[in-house]
Simulated scan of single mutants.
Amino acid sequence: MAGKKVLIVYAHQEPKSLNGSLKAIAVEELSKQGSDVTVSDLYDMQFEPRTTRTDIVGDLYNPEQFNYGVEAWEACKNGCLSEDLIEEQRKVKEADLLIFQFPLYWFSMPAIMKGWMDRVFIQGFAHDFPKCFDSGLLRYNKKALLSFTTGGDQGMYSKEGLSGDIRWVLWPMQHGILHFCGLSVLAPQICFAPEYVALEERKQMLSSWAKRLKTIWEEKPINCIPEWYYNI
């Protein structure tokens, strides 16, 4: 949709991977619609995933004992965060839609993307208890979705499968991070076991994503409550 802004936070080492293709399709399709698309390519940026003292510019709030949560909160309030965090937070503030593109690692996101969450979605910027979940600081007209690939097939991520239902895996990421910060969560885009399927099926995964993106602005958020995840 013309005038809309999109931030794609992308975590994969190989541009030729399916994740790389999914990211490229999102850029192409959303740009064709007139959206302004920005990509934070975390590996290419060599994004620092660790929460360290260097995230705070200048003096510490409590130099006697370093507490990252407190120091980042105070730095956020006082405009004393490092330039890379200010830049990523600017992208988030401007975005109408955030897409997180990644391969599933150990029932979660890659460390570099988790580090982006840890450093960017800090208290004072994305939440400020009790301003969380439906009152989170990012609640104003912002949607977010997880687009990811898995190693196991869809059967493995069923209620009866070895890994349990995929919605159980999504609870800490969608509810514990995105919803906690107030974002309206769209249904995930999941490509199951792309490395183990035929070429035609991988092509179908890409075309399905492109088709969905054509109407992504019309989608309604999921009802991000425990029942969506566990009453299956």
Score class of each variant (00 low, 15 high):
residue 51 T to R: 09
residue 51 T to D: 03
residue 52 T to Q: 00
residue 53 R to F: 02
residue 54 T to K: 15
residue 55 D to C: 11
residue 55 D to V: 09
residue 55 D to L: 15
residue 55 D to A: 12
residue 56 I to T: 07
residue 56 I to W: 04
residue 57 V to A: 03
residue 58 G to Y: 10
residue 58 G to V: 10
residue 59 D to F: 11
residue 60 L to C: 02
residue 60 L to R: 05
residue 61 Y to T: 03
residue 62 N to T: 11
residue 63 P to F: 08
residue 64 E to F: 10
residue 66 F to T: 04
residue 66 F to Y: 13
residue 68 Y to N: 11
residue 69 G to K: 07
residue 69 G to E: 07
residue 71 E to D: 01
residue 71 E to Y: 05
residue 72 A to C: 07
residue 74 E to C: 08
residue 76 C to E: 09
residue 77 K to V: 01
residue 77 K to D: 00
residue 78 N to P: 03
residue 79 G to R: 04
residue 81 L to W: 01
residue 82 S to R: 09
residue 82 S to D: 10
residue 83 E to P: 02
residue 84 D to Q: 09
residue 86 I to P: 06
residue 87 E to R: 14
residue 87 E to G: 08
residue 88 E to D: 06
residue 89 Q to V: 05
residue 89 Q to W: 04
residue 90 R to C: 03
residue 91 K to T: 03
residue 94 E to A: 14
residue 94 E to W: 07
residue 94 E to R: 12
residue 95 A to V: 04
residue 95 A to N: 05
residue 97 L to F: 03
residue 98 L to M: 14
residue 98 L to T: 11
residue 99 I to K: 01
residue 100 F to V: 01
residue 104 L to W: 04
residue 104 L to H: 06
residue 108 S to M: 12
residue 109 M to I: 13
residue 110 P to A: 11
residue 110 P to N: 09
residue 112 I to L: 09
residue 116 W to Y: 13
residue 117 M to W: 14
residue 118 D to R: 11
residue 120 V to I: 15
residue 123 Q to R: 14
residue 124 G to F: 05
residue 125 F to P: 07
residue 126 A to R: 10
residue 127 H to Y: 15
residue 127 H to I: 06
residue 127 H to P: 06
residue 129 F to P: 12
residue 130 P to E: 01
residue 131 K to E: 13
residue 131 K to H: 15
residue 132 C to G: 08
residue 132 C to D: 14
residue 133 F to Y: 15
residue 135 S to F: 13
residue 135 S to M: 14
residue 135 S to K: 15
residue 136 G to I: 14
residue 137 L to E: 02
residue 137 L to N: 05
